[in-house]
Design a binder for these strands. Sequence first.
DNA 1: ACATCACTTAAGCGTGTGCTTTACTAAAGC
DNA 2: GCTTTAGTAAAGCACACGCTTAAGTGATGT
Lengths: 107, 107
Amino acid sequence: MLNQLDDLDAVFHALADPTRRAMVERMTAGPTSVSELARPFQMSLAAVLQHVQVLEASGLVRTRKQGRVRICRIEPRALRRAEQWIQERRTTWEQRLDRLGEVLGEE
Amino acid sequence: MLNQLDDLDAVFHALADPTRRAMVERMTAGPTSVSELARPFQMSLAAVLQHVQVLEASGLVRTRKQGRVRICRIEPRALRRAEQWIQERRTTWEQRLDRLGEVLGEE
DNA sequence: ACATCACTTAAGCGTGTGCTTTACTAAAGC
DNA sequence: GCTTTAGTAAAGCACACGCTTAAGTGATGT
């Protein structure tokens, strides 16, 4: 099991690239082969594979080989961890603002 | 006003660094000066400032100068946009799995 | 058997990132 | 007025990133 905190580096880094986000988006429609992922882009298949490897290393995506095709699918738990990190910080901040508003309202 | 879609690049990139996430975390406790943000780290103040600039360029943080002190605070809307992008992809995938489960259950 | 398809690996290349040090500016304190 | 404080700007440096091309490998189709 990977370290959940350090892993956020890799997850957010993977999501910081528009090509990789588009790939994740494509995978939400269902498991996808590498060449299917490559279809919308101009870049070489080798480059696409490198993006897939970044996604897989981050835990956002899992792949398995079926014959000569590699099937890629989303791993929602990694998405959830990133989502939760953001959500916790945002809500902490917003609750702080609410308390501040109450204090100011009392005066 | 910045482009909200392209901006996700900058937001996720900003969050991909553990130093910057720690800074965001510190700011959830309230507005924070640059030198206060720097306190937990070994690195130079110049390096800390560069991190603050990355956060500000992403829209995650807003700063203003009060005298010789720069006060940094979280901008929750940028956090929310990143959170929503992840959430939408995750739930789309999970709903797809649910529908798949129903189809399999019918057989 | 042979060709084709779907990756895969390795090397290389230009650019970006995360620091550093040095030198500077301007507000605050005495 | 002089010093300290808090930040800022600029240059440089090692390494990581996002690509490319070229040369494989192994499964599939005929």
